[in-house]
């Protein structure tokens, strides 16, 4: 078995080496900072709205009241943030598929992207990765100061080099596969709501 795999590997690499064209240089990639949005938060809100995401700009003094008012039928409220208890915490899930019984989960994202309206989540914030796509509804706390301009900036975030799972999520799940009509939601999160809220500590967590 092993020798077949090594043989396959070597056969492929030999074939690639024999066939690859003369080397061409890697270009320098600019970050296009001249096209930075004047108001990242406004651009972020417009971008995420295009993807059926919702941004709440007003102050939310009481998270619990907010969640119960917005999701009156929710029974299982999972909190992945220290300042709020919810009805369960991610660590209480015994199996990764159990995230499907979560009605709404509240999380904090360390970064938003103005260009696309995306928010970053990794295994650190999610603790149980499946929450991002098995929980029914997601509420994301985001510090407006942590909204970067564009995707180039976004991919500079150390998470992409360090975390086993990092997700740029942009609105709730959707699909245009039926007759070309875009529907939200499709199979994963049904709604995505972003609450603008300053981060509890100044330093960014990098893992």
């Amino acid at each position: 078995m092993n020798s077949t795999r090594t043989f396959s590997r070597n056969t492929i690499l030999d074939s690639v080496r024999a066939n690859q064209p003369a080397t061409q240089p890697m270009p320098t990639i600019p970050h296009f900072h001249t096209n930075k949005p004047a108001d990242p938060m406004a651009t972020f809100s417009e971008s995420i709205a295009r993807m059926a995401g919702v941004v709440v700009t007003q102050d939310v003094p009481n998270l619990d009241s907010f969640l119960r008012a917005k999701f009156p039928d929710a029974k299982v409220i999972c909190s992945a943030i220290p300042e709020y208890g919810g009805t369960i915490k991610p660590e209480s899930l015994n199996h990764w598929s159990e995230a499907s019984r979560i009605d709404v989960c509240i999380l904090r994202s360390p970064m938003g992207v103005a260009e696309t309206g995306s928010i970053l989540l990794s295994d650190i914030e999610l603790q149980v990765n499946t929450i991002a796509f098995l929980a029914h509804d997601l509420v994301i706390l985001l510090d407006p100061k942590q909204i970067v301009s564009n995707i180039h900036d976004a991919y500079e975030n150390p998470y992409f080099k360090l975390r086993p799972y990092s997700l740029l999520m942009t609105g709730p799940s959707g699909s245009g596969d039926i007759g070309g009509i875009v529907v939200h939601p499709a199979q994963a999160a049904k709604t995505l709501t972003v609450l603008l809220s300053p981060a509890p500590d100044a330093g960014q967590r990098t893992g």
Binding site: R50, F133, L167
Partner: peptide, 13 residues
Amino acid sequence: AITQYTSTFRGPR
């Protein structure tokens, strides 16, 4: 501008 889920997997969960 982007898909709803653009995910980077660097290892098993």
